[in-house]
Amino acid sequence: MAVKPDTPYLDALRRDGFVKIPQLLSPQLLLAMRAACKYTTERAREGKWPYIRTVPKQYPPWHEWQEGDNIWGVQHLLHPDMNVRDTFAELYFSDEVLSVVKELVGLKDDPAGDDKLVMELFNLLVSPAKNTDFELRWHRDDIRPEVTEEQEAKQLQEKSPQGQQLHAQYNIALFDDASLIVIPGSHRRIRTDIERNAAPYEPSLPDQLVVELQAGDAVFYDSNILHRGIYRGINAKESLGRMTLHGSVGLAGHGNERARQVLQHAVGKWVDRAQFQIEGPRGERAEAMRTRLLAMGRGEDVGYSLDG
C-alpha cells in the first residue's frame, strides 16, 4: 500500500481554502522586515515611491502617486529601483516561504521542485492614514461576480484542476492583523443564493471567518476563496498600523492561465532588469524564478481580472 504523503498544509488548503502557519518568521527576520517596511511605507506616503494602491480603488490598474493620495498598499517590493529590495528578496526567495509554497503546489517531495517555481508578486498592505477606514468588496481574485452559476463552476475547476492550485498566495503579518475575512470551503463551490445576492460590503455572511494573525504568522489561501478585507485607518504620525506582506509564487508550465493575474500588476514592465544581488543557491534560485516570469511576457493587452 502506498504511503500517503505528509502534507498538512496542502490538506488544510484543499479542505478550507486557507491554512494559517504560526510564527513563519523568526524574531530576527521579523525585526528586519518591520524596519524595511516602515521605511518603505513612509517613502510611499511622501510620494518618494510611485507604485502604490490608493483609497478607494480596490483593483488594478492603479495610478502612480499623486499629491493627496491615501495609500493602502505599496507595490513592487522586488522592483530594481526599490532601494531595500535585497531585504525583501531574501524573504521572498527564502526556504521559510518556498518550502510551504512547494507543498501547496504539489512539489514537496520533488527534488527538482525549485526548477518549477515562478517569481510572481510581492507587495505590502498597510493601514490608510488620515484615520480613514477602507473596505474591500466580497470577491474571488480571478472570477468576476457577474458570471452565471455554470461559468462560475467551470472557472473554479479550470483555475484549480483536480483541486491543485497553479500558484500559492499568502499574507505575512508583521504586526497583529485581523483584516482578512474568508468563507471557508467556498473555493470549491459556486456561491449560494445568499452570497450571490449579498451587498458588496455585506458585513455578515453565513460561516464567514476573520483570519486572526499574530506578528510573524502567515496565512496561505486559495485566491478564489470568497473573501474581503477591512483596513482600519490610523493617524500615521502616531501609529504604524497594519503592515502585512502579500505575495504569490507560481507553478511553471501554466503561463497562459496565470499571465493575466500576474502581469495585470505591471510587473512585466521591469522584471527584465531586476537581477538580484543574492549569493549562493538562493541567488541561483532567485535568478531562475525571475527568468521564468520574464518568459511570460511584458503584459501588454492581458486585461484585468476584476473592475473597480
Rank of each mutant, 00 (worst) to 15 (best):
V3W: 00
K4P: 10
P5G: 09
D6L: 11
D6I: 14
Y9I: 12
R15E: 15
G17M: 06
V19I: 13
K20E: 13
L30D: 09
M33K: 07
A36R: 01
C37A: 15
C37I: 07
T41L: 12
A44K: 08
E46W: 04
W49Y: 14
P50A: 10
T54M: 12
V55Y: 03
K57H: 13
P60M: 04
W62H: 15
W62K: 12
N70K: 13
W72K: 06
V84A: 02
R85E: 02
E90M: 00
E90S: 11
Y92M: 07
S94D: 10
S99M: 13
V105T: 01
G106P: 02
G106H: 06
D109W: 09
P111D: 07
D114K: 05
V118D: 03
M119W: 07
L121T: 15
F134Y: 13
W138A: 10
D141H: 11
D141M: 08
D142M: 10
I143E: 03
V147K: 03
V147F: 07
E149T: 15
A153H: 15
K154W: 14
K154T: 15
H167M: 15
H167R: 14
H167V: 01
Q169V: 04
A173S: 12
F175R: 15
S179H: 08
R188E: 15
R191Q: 14
R191W: 14
I194M: 12
E195L: 09
N197R: 12
P200G: 00
P203L: 03
P203E: 01
S204I: 02
L205D: 04
L205Q: 06
V211T: 01
L213M: 12
Q214P: 02
A215N: 06
G216R: 00
A218Y: 03
A218Q: 11
V219W: 04
Y221W: 13
D222P: 03
S223H: 14
R228G: 01
R228K: 13
R232Q: 14
I234K: 00
I234V: 11
A236G: 09
E238H: 08
G241T: 02
R242C: 06
M243Q: 15
G247A: 12
G253L: 03
G255E: 13
R260A: 00
L263A: 06
Q264V: 03
H265P: 07
V271H: 04
A274R: 02
A274I: 07
F276D: 03
P281T: 02
R282D: 11
E284W: 04
A286R: 04
E287W: 02
R292A: 00
R292V: 08
A295I: 00
G303L: 06
